[in-house]
């Protein structure tokens, strides 16, 4: 990372914003629709998949991460990573409690 690097301030055009809004609305409709169909184990997966996609769109475009420095991308990554540790390792404890002794 070089010091005082004046990277061009990227202005995202309203067209991109509108497209993302449309995608988010479609995603919302889709997830509501999918929730009424019984897909068994797939239901939560689809719901969370759509939610993750929507969140990614917001992060990338509304929050300009796509046009931001590597540092910002790394920061987002670090947040997701630590969140995963918290959820993953805590759940690992809960799921293995039922296994009993080894």
């Amino acid at each position: 990372m070089s010091e005082h690097q004046e990277h061009e301030h990227h202005i995202v055009s309203p067209k991109v914003y509108a497209t993302i809004l449309l995608a988010l609305l479609v995603g919302t409709a889709l997830t509501v629709w999918a929730s009424y169909i019984d897909l068994g184990i797939l239901n939560p997966i689809i719901a969370l998949g759509i939610a993750c996609t929507k969140a990614t769109l917001v992060v990338l475009f509304f929050m300009h991460v796509k046009y931001s420095s590597k540092l910002t991308k790394l920061t987002v990554g670090a947040g997701v990573f630590t969140f995963m540790i918290l959820v993953g390792m805590t759940l690992a404890d809960y799921f293995t409690r039922a296994w009993g002794r080894w």
């Binding site: 540790i85 390792m89 690992a92 404890d93 799921f95 293995t96 409690r97 039922a98 080894w102």
Partner: peptide, 21 residues
């Protein structure tokens, strides 16, 4: 430092497998 917190809980009823890890 983020991967070790449950060593404070070894005697508190977390799963044996977590204890190991």
């Amino acid at each position: 430092g983020f991967f070790v917190w449950a060593h404070h809980m070894f005697i508190m009823g977390i799963s044996n497998y977590s204890v190991l890890i």
